[in-house]
Simulated scan of single mutants.
Amino acid sequence: MNWLQELTGTNKAVIAMCHLQAMPGDPYYDKAKGMDYVVEMARQELRTLQDGGVDAVMFSNEFSLPYLTDVRTETVAAMARIIGELKSEIKIPYGVNVLWDAKKSIDLAAATGAQFVRGFFTGVYGSDFGLWNTNVGETVRHRQAVGADNVKLLFNIVPESAKYMAVRDIREIAVSTVFVGKPDALCISGLTAGAPTDPQLLRFMKEAVPGTVVLANTGVNAANFREQLSIADGVVMETAFKVDGKSENKADVSKVSSLMDRIKEFRLGLKG
């Protein structure tokens, strides 16, 4: 049994994204509605996902566009307030993702009790957000320094809206990343949020790093979840749960519960 099964109590876990509205300091923050509105929207989203039966939830600042690679204090503070106000209502395992700053994600996890974080911990990229560098040695040491040793690290291995600066085979990257960074999971994505993860790439990753949890990170939906979950150890989902299948819309409890019922039925027929 891997750590994700132990955490969620199931095989092939579904981690649902709870997207937070733009917050103070973000270009599209609604000052008139203020933070009370942001908190209430997060509360509604969390309730919808939990009532629909997802296995875990991950809070992220999805609407902090355009993203920063060195996130400012006000964003982390706002996210901590939101999660702090909701903590008594969270009934399932939860993680955090401060886009796109791995160290700030760890800080937020340490402050809120989150059990896992997702981020880019390794690699150098040419991205829509400029030249993007990482320092896995510094980041992992930072986790220890802030007392977050038990927080699981989910490494994004296929960058969204970016490309590796070095020309390397993705399987080579996966193997070296696991050897150097010792991630708790690798997240395999499509090109952008909502874009399906290539099933062939998922198979390559499972073969390349058989002892590491591999997650399908984007584009899992009602049409492809069987194929994705037959390969991956779990999935990160969001768009498929939203009204009209659009990332910017609210999650729909009927869509969540309907799809989760189908996923749970599918899991019953699998081993491990």
Rank of each mutant, 00 (worst) to 15 (best):
K12R: 15
K12Y: 02
A16N: 07
A16I: 04
H19D: 08
H19V: 12
H19S: 13
L20A: 10
Q21A: 15
M23H: 07
M23P: 02
P27R: 10
Y28D: 15
D30C: 07
G34E: 04
D36Q: 13
D36L: 06
D36E: 12
D36V: 10
Y37A: 11
Y37T: 09
M41G: 06
M41I: 00
M41N: 14
A42K: 07
A42R: 10
E45S: 11
E45R: 12
L46Y: 00
L46H: 01
L49K: 07
L49M: 14
D51T: 13
G53A: 05
G53R: 06
V54Q: 06
V54F: 06
V54E: 03
D55W: 01
D55R: 03
V57D: 05
V57I: 13
V57K: 09
F59S: 04
S60K: 14
N61G: 12
E62P: 01
F63A: 12
F63W: 15
L65T: 14
L65Q: 14
P66H: 12
T69C: 08
D70T: 14
D70W: 07
V71T: 13
V71Q: 08
V71S: 13
R72G: 05
T73E: 14
E74Y: 09
V76H: 02
A77H: 04
A77V: 12
A78I: 02
A80Q: 10
R81H: 13
I83L: 02
I83N: 01
G84I: 05
E85H: 12
E85T: 00
L86T: 04
L86W: 01
K87T: 03
K87Q: 12
E89L: 10
E89V: 06
P93D: 09
Y94T: 00
Y94C: 00
V96S: 04
N97S: 10
N97K: 01
N97I: 00
V98S: 10
V98R: 00
L99F: 13
L99R: 08
L99G: 11
W100T: 09
D101R: 06
D101M: 03
A102P: 03
K103P: 03
K103Q: 13
